[in-house]
C-alpha cells in the first residue's frame, strides 16, 4: 500500500510516496539519489547503511521509511565538510571504500558525544561497522587523530 510521508534529509524536506515496508536505505538511494549510503548485508549485520536519526546512528536497511517519523536523517552526503573525511584519506583508512560512509557516519556521532574518545571507547562505538578489507587499525587511527586534534 502506498502511503505518503515527509522526510527531512541533511536539512532538506522531501514529500514522497512509498509502499509500506520500504526501507529508508532504498528511499535514500533509489528515490532521492543519495547513493553514498551503501547496502551490503541488507539485514542489520554490517553497518554499511548507517545514517543518523536525530544524531543517533541507525541502520537504514532495516528501518522502515514510514517509521522515521519526525526524526531528521543525516547521510554521508551531509557530512562532506566533516574533518573525519580528510582524516580517513590521510590515515589510509580504506581499501575498497564500501564500508567508509557508514564508518564516518558512526564516527561522527561518537565524536559529537565524546570529542576525545579513548581507543576502548572507539572500539565500543564502532563495533557495528564491519570492514571486509580489514582496515580497522587505520579507521581507529583516523578517528583518534580527529579526536586528539580538537
Amino acid at each position: 500500500m502506498l502511503e505518503s510521508l515527509e522526510l527531512t534529509v541533511n536539512g532538506d524536506r522531501h514529500a514522497l510516496d512509498a509502499p509500506v515496508g520500504r526501507s529508508l536505505a532504498e528511499v535514500l538511494r533509489d528515490d532521492l539519489g543519495l547513493t553514498g549510503t551503501k547496502i551490503a548485508c541488507y539485514e542489520g549485520h554490517c553497518g554499511a547503511c548507517t545514517v543518523l536519526l536525530d544524531g543517533v546512528p541507525a541502520l537504514s536497511c532495516i528501518t522502515l521509511v514510514h517509521a522515521v517519523g519526525g526524526r531528521g536523517v543525516t547521510t554521508i552526503e551531509g557530512l562532506r565538510e566533516h574533518p573525519l573525511v580528510d582524516a580517513f584519506v590521510r590515515e589510509d583508512a580504506l581499501q575498497c571504500g564500501f564500508c567508509t560512509p557508514g564508518q564516518i557516519v558512526s564516527a561522527s556521532a561518537l565524536l559529537a558525544a565524546n570529542p576525545r574518545p579513548t581507543r576502548e571507547e572507539i572500539g565500543h562505538a564502532m563495533a557495528g561497522n564491519l570492514c571486509r578489507c580489514g582496515a580497522y587499525r587505520n579507521i581507529e587511527a583516523a578517528i583518534a587523530s580527529v579526536g586528539g586534534g580538537r
Binding site: 542489520g44 543517533v56 546512528p57 558512526s106 564502532m126 557495528g128
Partner: peptide, 9 residues
C-alpha cells in the same frame, strides 16, 4: 549485546 546501531534501535 548486538552493535551500537542495533542497541539504539
Amino acid at each position: 549485546a548486538a552493535s551500537p546501531q542495533l542497541r539504539s534501535m
